[in-house]
């Protein structure tokens, strides 16, 4: 576990840079993490982020398919917004855990 400072706030992160607690997240923190991922956030990006956070609060495991069927974005659009590994990048910006398998 490491501590990082985004937008003047110290937050607990995993070694891979994912927030430990969604409760510590705010939009300014999200914007700075997005910069590290070379992404300039637009309203559409935020719409996706907010969907991911809602699903995370419900305890639903996120998949590319579920995002494609969410009505928020198509899978193609999701890739355009968050190129190369969209689920991984978007999860990091959203302050939710990295999608993992069992090992």
């Amino acid at each position: 576990m490491i501590e990082k400072t985004y937008a003047g706030t110290a937050v607990a992160c995993t070694d891979e840079g994912y927030l430990q607690e969604l409760a510590q997240w705010n939009k300014s923190i999200g914007t700075e993490i997005a910069k590290e991922e070379s992404i300039d956030m637009t309203p559409k990006h935020w719409e996706v982020i907010s969907y991911l956070q809602d699903q995370n609060k419900k305890g639903t495991a996120l998949t590319i398919r579920s995002i494609g069927k969410s009505g928020v974005v198509s899978i193609k659009e999701f890739y355009e917004l968050f190129p190369e590994g969209p689920l991984k990048k978007a999860s990091r910006i959203a302050g939710i855990p990295k999608p993992v398998s069992c090992i």
Binding site: T14, E16, K88, K98, V100, I103
Partner: peptide, 12 residues
């Protein structure tokens, strides 16, 4: 794999 590696958890 759709995941970010063959192993996705730090210890593994």
């Amino acid at each position: 794999t759709p995941m970010d590696g063959a192993f996705t958890k730090p210890k593994a």
